[in-house]
Design a protein around this nucleic acid. Structure first.
Length: 269
DNA sequence: TCGATCCTGTAG
DNA sequence: CTACAGGATCGA
């Protein structure tokens, strides 16, 4: 599920739990997650490197290392990246782990193995992320910018929100939730959106993502827990047939661009 | 811009 | 057993 809020949550936990991490050794248990780099190349590059800072870009967790390297973790569908105190007890779906001092470790756990780890020269990151749209939680992100991203788009709004080249960070869950918060139907054609709708959507995206980050901390106790529980906070996602919290009418589900979409037909137009 | 696909786990 | 899953990418 990791979308922007979950990636942000992981980064903040890392800052708290492992601010001074130095990687002693990387162990790759599933080589396919490192492609196109080789596991050996990655392991050699990060060995002995100190984490200078943690950051997030879109849904990527970034570890800026000394000597100008950055480890980029693309979380995929089920990736979790977090610190554990005792590396002798690796989590069940650990695919890659990084031994630190004192027996601790950074773990990449990924049951479905759609994730990806890659090391880059830090100065080349801009090229890596060249295709990305704006960060929705940055101060400079405006409704005009969002509208401009959709200037030439013709399709329905929900698949547009999933397109990381338009705006980053939204996945299937928070796209559906943002549209509900904005009162816009997921099937609404982009050219039909007026300025009021773009404003509402812009506001809803920021509100939804911010609340999801806060909620992740509220429902989560320890570093290794993952905020699956934030699904409980959803207004439409995963609630087909359940009463809409606003109008009490039934939430509906349909498939759009190959993915489930949830919405309230009454509240979203 | 869409559909298929990568791979594995879990729910029904 | 079968169906389905929250991401990203590739080729049509």
């Amino acid at each position: 599920m990791p979308e922007l809020p979950e990636a942000e949550y992981m980064v903040r936990r890392l800052v708290e739990c492992a601010p001074e991490a130095r990687i002693r050794e990387a162990t790759v248990l599933r080589a396919s997650l490192i492609a196109p780099q080789s596991p050996d190349e990655l392991a050699e590059t990060v060995r002995g490197r100190r984490v200078v800072s943690y950051a997030r870009r879109a849904k990527n967790v970034l570890l800026h290392l000394d000597k100008g390297w950055t480890l980029r973790v693309q979380l995929g569908m089920t990736g979790h990246f977090y610190w554990i105190a005792d590396a002798r007890v690796l989590p069940r779906f650990t695919r890659v782990w990084f031994a630190l001092g004192n027996g601790a470790a950074l773990v990449f756990e990924d049951s479905r193995t759609f994730g990806n780890l890659h090391v880059h020269r830090t100065e080349e990151l801009a090229e890596v992320f060249a295709a990305y749209g704006p960060e929705p939680l940055e101060d400079g992100f405006s409704w005009q910018q969002l509208k401009a991203s959709g200037a030439r788009a013709k399709g329905p709004i929900k698949p547009f929100l999933l397109d990381q080249s338009k705006v980053v960070g939204l996945g299937n869950i928070w796209a559906a939730e943002s549209l509900f918060a904005a009162g816009i139907a997921p099937g609404r054609a982009i050219p039909e959106l007026d300025d009021a709708a773009w404003k509402a959507l812009h506001r809803a995206i920021r509100k939804t993502l911010t609340a999801a980050i806060e909620n992740a901390f509220r429902v989560t106790g320890s570093a290794e827990d993952f905020p699956e529980a934030d699904l409980l906070a959803c207004a439409v996602y995963g609630r087909p047939g359940a009463p809409c919290r606003r109008c009490k009418g039934p939430i509906e589900r349909f498939v759009q661009a190959g993915r489930s979409t949830f919405h309230c037909p009454q509240c979203q137009r």
